[in-house]
């Protein structure tokens, strides 16, 4: 049986459904282990994606990776899991490495695809400039799946939800405050991203970027200098030393396309570049290019998107 860890404290994210789909496609029964007090009617919908069992420890809030590793290890032992899947998100990145040591099981961090025929698993290396194929040398393997690498797929299975007490002890981490911008789409999970760089000239001009993003239902991102000078928050900085993303659509306005920027975004399925300079290096990595002034093109783009959306209804 394959085991998937999901944090369901805030409901089921798309990344969670991706991990269940991935586990099911590996070709055996799927059990899910989760923390948080989600309703069993919510958790049992994981059956739609192929899970047949959900083990829920509602006593854990999911803030301490030291507790979560005990939870996942206990569940893995209970069901005899040989493959354990996480999302390669902020929780997976904290818990999967701990589990690797605890179980002495090889970890493939940031898988972007199902295993190859020889069992090796593809990951991004060199910040997306190349791919590596990881061979796991142990009988039990742990895989953390990069968000947006596969789409959730239904595979209806009867699913039971069981209470599970992992006896994970007390939390070593005390949460003092949590800040989550309302309604914002977490950048690593976003399917559509509108990004802008120094070409926007100042933070007061970001309204036209946000307008396009909201018309599309996209997240916003930026180049490094823009975050460095404080025009935009650090968590929006994408690239080799920022967040690496692979949305379906990446729109870059006023960004030159330096190698360090491209490294974090060239896993995007489609790239649109808007730049006044026809020689900007970003055009070489783009699928669609507009040589033009972002201050004129972005508002027109927003209008065109609104028109398109209105026509669809």
């Amino acid at each position: 049986m394959n085991l998937v860890y999901i944090n369901s404290a805030n409901g089921l994210s798309k990344a969670a459904l991706e991990t269940v789909t991935y586990a099911k496609k590996l070709g055996s029964d799927v059990a899910v282990v989760t923390n948080g007090g989600a309703d069993s009617s919510v958790l049992s919908t994981l059956g739609t994606y192929g899970a047949s069992l959900v083990l829920q420890d509602s006593s854990l809030d999911g803030q301490d990776p030291g507790q979560l590793v005990k939870l996942v290890a206990a569940a893995a032992q209970k069901i005899g899991a040989t493959t354990i899947i996480f999302s390669h998100d902020l929780i997976g990145k904290a818990v999967a490495p701990r589990l690797s040591v605890r179980l002495k099981a090889g970890l493939v961090a940031g898988a972007v695809a199902l295993p190859e025929a020889n069992g090796n698993i593809k990951v991004n290396v060199f910040s997306g400039k190349a791919f590596g194929y990881v061979k796991v040398n142990t009988a039990t393997r742990i895989i953390s799946l990069l968000p947006n690498s596969i789409q959730p797929e239904t595979n209806s299975t009867a699913c039971s939800v069981e209470a599970f007490d992992a006896q994970a002890g007390s939390s070593a981490i005390k949460v003092l405050a949590t800040k989550k911008p309302e309604g914002a789409i977490p950048l690593p999970e976003a399917e559509l991203v509108v990004s802008a760089g120094r070409g926007l000239k100042g933070p007061e001009n970001w309204g036209i970027v946000e307008d396009l993003a909201s018309a599309l239902g996209a997240a916003t991102a930026c180049s490094r200098p823009v975050a460095d000078i404080g025009w935009r928050p650090h968590h929006e900085h994408v690239g080799q030393t920022g967040v690496a993303i692979r949305p379906n659509l990446y729109i870059a306005a006023g960004i030159s396309g330096a190698i360090q920027h491209l490294a974090g975004v060239n896993g995007s399925k489609v790239i649109v570049v808007i730049n006044t300079d026809a020689e900007a290096p970003f055009f070489k990595a783009a699928d669609y290019g507009i040589v033009g002034d972002a201050f004129e093109v972005l508002p027109r783009f927003t209008e065109a998107v609104k028109k398109f959306k209105a026509a669809q209804h």
Binding site: V125, Y133, V136
Partner: peptide
């Protein structure tokens, strides 16, 4: 012993 090995690489 290492638990994992990079068996090979490819370019996009």
């Amino acid at each position: 012993d290492a638990l994992t090995t990079y068996a090979s690489y490819s370019m996009p």
